Amino acid sequence: MSDRLTRLLGIEHGIVQGPFGGGLSSVPLAAAVSAAGGLGSFGANHLTPDGITALVGELRAAVPDGLPFNVNLWVPHPGEQDLRPTAADVERLRPFYERLELKTPDGYAPPPLFDDQIDALLAAAPPVISFVMGVPPARVVEETRRRGIVTLGTATTVDEALALEAGGIDVVIASGSDAGGHRGAFLRPVTESLVGTFSLVPQVADAVGVPVLAAGGIADRRGVLAARALGADGVQIGTGFLATTESGTSTAHKAALAGPDARTTVLTRIFSGRHARAILNPLIREMAAAEDQVPPYPVQNTLMRPLRAAAASRNDAAHVNLWAGQAAALSRPIPAADYVESLL
């Protein structure tokens, strides 16, 4: 892997574990990846400021020998933190609440504010902070530089990569449409930003002067070699690490990643109000007609959270968000350290 990337991040191998939001990340997974010479990550977009402070403390205690780790936040889109659900938004989900024997919500608790989250994260000062969904505010980038924190930003198009570089981000993650989980498009709609990894990575590598991580559809050593051939300095892998022993994914999710259903993934707004790639399951099929009706993030995400949690706790693959990229069928249920070794 490129020396400029490994030196910048303080890692041995140019392998970054993708950060998973919504509770799918785990401290043991991040610690195992960092201990194996990569960069372990934790998605903190769902955590309160106090939760973020505690998380960084846990990561520091778990990651051995002062090795680096990464904490991820979502940059909010304009106006989204002021949104509230309508009665129709709640009513649309009533049959699913009843099916899972849950009480229909009678109020709405908005998620933590980004400004509060990032202030707590900056104060905790992890070695690396990554962002998705946009360019962080200038005052945030200035503070990361003052504190010696390395920043990563996710781009789904060349224009987004250029915007991240202009905004002072240290490393650009070129995330192809092959990738699992949420699409991070922020300059154009997702439907206009679906560039495959093989098309995106070389264009981004040519366009920016900062190190580039390739992401999307990379799950084994062949994908790592291909990313390097395309001009990437390293790789970020999500789905492959979701399948590992230490990840926070449910038993049902891991079973789906290991089965034939992993060969079919779709982009859906059903689970969060934002497009995300997941293994096709009965809930996605049942709600397909409502794809354009569900409210945007974070409203739909908040309304769906109890359903997702209940389904995961029951190992109910029919009603849970089975995030997965298009190379999911290549993933294997092995310890994270063994997986890193296999990528090398």
Rank of each mutant, 00 (worst) to 15 (best):
P110I: 08
A125L: 08
L230Q: 03
V141D: 12
R277S: 07
V201H: 04
E98I: 09
A252C: 11
V340E: 02
A120P: 15
D82E: 13
V235G: 10
F271D: 00
A166I: 09
V71H: 09
T156K: 12
P111Q: 14
G153L: 01
I173T: 15
V158Q: 01
S331H: 08
P306F: 12
D116T: 13
A44Q: 15
P126F: 01
L267F: 14
A229I: 13
F198Y: 10
H319Q: 12
G216R: 01
D170E: 11
A226K: 00
G40M: 02
A312Q: 12
V128W: 01
A232V: 05
T156R: 15
F271E: 00
T268W: 11
S177D: 12
R269G: 11
R285H: 10
V294E: 07
A205F: 08
V266A: 11
D316H: 02
D89Q: 09
R222Q: 13
E91N: 13
P127I: 14
E80M: 06
E160F: 01
A32P: 06
G23W: 13
D206N: 09
A179F: 04
S2R: 12
F42T: 08
V90P: 05
G217D: 15
A32L: 06
S247N: 04
L5D: 07
A232C: 05
F186T: 05
G10T: 07
I52Q: 00
V132Y: 06
D206L: 06
R4P: 11
N45K: 07
V132F: 15
A258P: 09
P28V: 06
N72R: 00
G196T: 04
P202L: 06
G21R: 06
G273T: 07
D178L: 00
A35R: 10
R221G: 08
P110H: 04
V201C: 03
L322W: 01
A258R: 08
I279S: 01
P136T: 01
T53P: 12
F186Y: 11
V224M: 15
V204D: 02
P49K: 05
D233R: 04
R146T: 08
L73Q: 02
V141P: 10
K254P: 02
P298K: 06
A329H: 14
T191L: 15
E341H: 09
F96H: 13
A138W: 11
E98G: 10
V210G: 03
A166G: 03
V150D: 01
R139H: 13
A166C: 04
K103M: 15
D170Y: 03
D206A: 14
Q326K: 05
Q236S: 14
G181W: 03
L73S: 02
A337P: 06
T48Y: 07
V208A: 05
K103A: 07
